[in-house]
Computed example of a mutant assay.
Amino acid sequence: MCAALSSCHPNASIQEPGQAYLQGEWQQQKEAIHQKLITYSLYHLKFSCDSFYVQMQSFSHVNSGADTCMRSGHWVEYAKGVYYQQNDTLRLKGYFTTANNSLKRQGGCFRSGIYDEVFKVGSKTDSALQLTSTSNVVPIHLQLIKRATCHPKPLQ
């Protein structure tokens, strides 16, 4: 029971607006540092209100798995879910998906199940953003490729 009406509110039945500066599509380009790494991923992120969609193109000079999965050192993984930001911490939480955004089944190549990534937001401008994953020391420099505006949709 609530002590005051102002502290109580029902679960929202509509999507949250998310962070205005993130709305749209962001692409990471290959940089000189990537040529020195054994394995790296390039991110394509799409933010729509409080939701995210991510495509991670991974490259490896070392084949540590079956070539049907590694595809000569290049593979792609996808995830979608919701995000939230607190201070300079951006958390993406969702599930690994297939290329058509359906839930990825267990087994097969690479990761499936829960996708949970935490980034520190570094420098940001209207068209550039730097994120640093808590699981990687190489910063992710993203360029805005398409700006969008949040139009919240009813939750299903």
Score class of each variant (00 low, 15 high):
M1G: 06
L5H: 03
L5V: 07
L5K: 08
L5S: 06
C8G: 01
C8D: 05
C8Y: 11
H9P: 03
N11Q: 10
S13C: 00
I14T: 14
Q15P: 02
E16G: 06
P17H: 06
P17F: 02
P17V: 09
G18R: 06
G18K: 04
A20F: 03
A20K: 13
Y21G: 01
L22K: 00
G24Y: 06
E25G: 00
Q28E: 15
H34D: 12
H34G: 02
H34K: 02
K36S: 11
T39C: 06
T39S: 12
T39G: 02
S41F: 09
H44F: 07
H44P: 01
H44Q: 08
L45P: 10
L45V: 05
K46G: 00
K46S: 09
F47E: 07
F47K: 02
F47I: 07
S51I: 01
S51N: 15
F52C: 00
Q57M: 11
S58Q: 12
S58Y: 01
F59R: 07
H61Q: 14
N63L: 14
N63R: 13
S64W: 15
A66T: 10
T68L: 09
R71L: 13
S72Q: 11
G73E: 14
G73P: 15
E77T: 15
E77V: 14
Y78T: 01
Y78M: 07
Y78G: 08
G81K: 02
G81Q: 03
Q85R: 12
N87G: 05
N87E: 15
T89K: 06
R91G: 00
L92W: 01
G94L: 02
G94H: 03
F96V: 03
T98R: 11
T98G: 07
A99V: 13
N100I: 12
N101P: 15
N101F: 10
S102A: 10
S102H: 14
S102R: 13
L103F: 14
L103N: 11
Q106D: 11
G107W: 05
G108N: 04
C109A: 10
C109F: 10
F110G: 01
S112T: 06
S112G: 01
S112N: 04
G113T: 04
G113M: 03
G113C: 09
I114T: 09
Y115S: 08
D116V: 00
D116G: 02
E117L: 07
E117H: 09
V118C: 02
V121Y: 11
K124Y: 14
S127D: 15
A128E: 15
A128I: 02
Q130W: 01
Q130I: 12
Q130E: 15
L131Y: 07
T132G: 04
T134L: 12
S135L: 12
S135I: 04
N136E: 15
P139V: 09
P139W: 09
I140S: 04
I140K: 05
I140C: 02
L142I: 09
Q143A: 11
Q143M: 12
Q143T: 10
Q143E: 14
I145V: 15
K146M: 02
K146I: 01
R147M: 06
R147C: 07
A148G: 03
A148C: 00
T149P: 01
T149H: 10
H151Y: 04
K153I: 05
Q156F: 05
